[in-house]
Design a binder for these strands. Structure first.
Length: 432
RNA sequence: GGAGGGAUGACAGAGCGGCCGAAUGUACCGGUCUUGAAAACCGGCGUGGGCUUGCCCACCGUGGGUUCAAAUCCCACUCCCUCCGCCA
């Protein structure tokens, strides 16, 4: 949620910042008007309530003085006032609800550093990495045997069974088997071990309450993109960001305990409603995938370093896996609702010849903290924390890039050495 | 799923329907004393909102209700604890 006080103080600044990501001026103006109306009505209602409280006190005094006539009179006056107060309070609440609903639909202000632009075409490529780039090696020229889509590689090796996944849960719910399933497990274990030095491992619930989904900004805006369990007012989490951000919801943290850094391996569920029919082949876009998430609550001063650390860890894993990737600085218009700044990592997958998003490292400033009401006590008083998070990494597409990149001329897949402690024999052969 | 008990400030723990936003203790902050520290003593110490910055309003698990007036009475729900049942 954006800061209403800031909107009052400098409406021009807020309007201009939001315009960078395509929010029309009228949406902001509507909120300013509602805020003015809300405060007017609030004052009226509160004045009435103050008067009622005063009358009540005087009733008590009259009673004590055994002046029953006076008490009766005061009670009658207060009763009439009570009716007016009820009406005023209802009107105030109606405006407040409207204001709240509209405010929840407003996305975060983009950071000044976020590039200009309205859609993904305007994202800025910051750098590319591939094996040997530091030694001056040119961009890899992939061999013919690497130019096989992962769904074909997987069929040869019997490590992915999309038909059975569809049979169980519908299309785009993958079922991995044999070495394919084991590879997924190895990747998660590798990542969690890499983050153990600084991030506490969490295994949160895979479902969240509506209130929890509100905190991160996934609701009310993105309801169509999530799986819902209405009977129990639950939603399947689209990312571990959701439970992690709400872990300390409503709390006031001590500055000394910040940054609080957490990591979690969870399944992530996404309906992909807006992308129906696009990238439906193989693992390019799936409804459920495993992901290791990195997250931190921090002070505004710590945010930049915390964001950089997550990005470095995500990139570090990609390098350890020897995968070619590029780094994208998302333009203002392509930022997620809650984000002020986001760096995406896209891995190059030679078989399908595409760049696949495998991580999104975001800085939310106090947008989520304001919604989740997570604050910390500092010398300057109590203020909202900043939250940052990023994937390290999302495995379905990594899995695809790995089997394509490491496919050998003899049609086996030879996995990178870094997986040896988790996978053992690194060659995946067709199942006999 | 069934039966009972509970939910109050950072924590512990009081609170006949009427100066209760809330006693008291601990913790914390400032001061006195002390070579220093501890102890003792004195003072301070919840959050959010509105506006004429001194006042006003809201908040005692959540949501309703009764009343001139609710932490306190009534109803529903949620969570925690104990016991029974079921279960990976």
């Amino acid at each position: 949620m954006i800061d209403l006080a800031q909107l009052r103080r400098e409406p021009g600044v807020v309007t201009a910042a939001l315009a960078r990501r395509g929010v029309p001026r009228s949406s902001v103006d509507a909120i300013v008007q509602l805020d003015i109306e809300h405060r007017q009505r609030l004052q009226e209602a509160e004045a009435l309530r103050a008067e009622i409280k005063d009358l009540s006190r005087r009733v008590a005094l009259a009673r004590r003085a055994h002046d029953d006539a006076q008490a009766q009179l005061l009670q009658a006056t207060s009763r009439d006032l009570g009716e007016r107060e009820r009406v005023a309070a209802e009107a105030t609440e109606a405006v407040a609800a409207d204001l709240r609903a509209q405010l929840l639909m407003i996305p975060n202000l983009p950071a000044p550093e976020a590039p200009e632009g309205l859609d993904e075409g305007d994202n800025v490529e910051v750098r590319r990495w591939w094996v040997g780039v530091d030694e001056g090696a040119p961009f890899p020229t992939y061999q013919e045997h690497q130019r096989v889509a992962h769904w074909d590689v997987a069929r040869e090796l019997g490590i992915l069974d999309l038909e059975t996944g569809a049979k169980l849960a519908g299309s785009m719910f993958p079922l991995y088997r044999g070495d394919g399933a084991r590879l997924l497990r190895a990747l998660s274990f590798l990542a969690l071990d890499r983050h153990r030095d600084a991030y506490e491992e969490i295994r949160p619930p895979s479902v969240a309450l509506t209130e929890t989904m509100m905190s991160t900004g996934h609701l009310p805006k993105s309801a169509d993109d999530m799986y819902e369990v209405p009977r129990d007012d639950l939603w399947l989490i689209p990312t571990a960001e959701v439970p992690l951000t709400s872990m300390r919801r409503g709390e006031i943290l001590e500055e000394s305990e910040l940054p609080i850094r957490l990591t979690a391996l969870t399944a992530c569920f996404r309906r992909e409603a807006g992308a129906a029919g696009r990238d439906t082949r193989g693992l390019l876009r799936v409804h459920e995938f495993d992901k290791v998430e990195l997250f931190a609550y921090c002070t505004p001063e710590q945010a930049e370093a915390a964001h950089a650390d997550i990005l470095a860890r995500a990139e570090g894993l990609l390098r350890e896996l020897g995968l070619t990737y590029r780094v994208l600085d998302l333009c203002a218009g392509d930022l997620g609702t809650s984000s002020a700044r986001t760096i995406d990592l896209e891995v190059y997958s030679p078989g399908v010849d595409r760049w696949l998003e495998v991580s999104s490292v975001s800085w939310f400033r106090d947008f989520q903290a304001r919604r989740a009401n997570v604050r910390y006590r500092s010398a300057q008083g109590t203020q909202f924390v900043h939250t940052v998070n990023g994937s390290a990494l999302a495995w379905a597409r990594i899995w695809a890039a790995l089997v394509e990149t490491y496919r050998q001329a003899d049609a086996t897949v030879r996995l990178p050495e870094v997986l040896a402690p988790y996978f053992g024999e690194l060659t995946i052969r067709p199942r006999s």
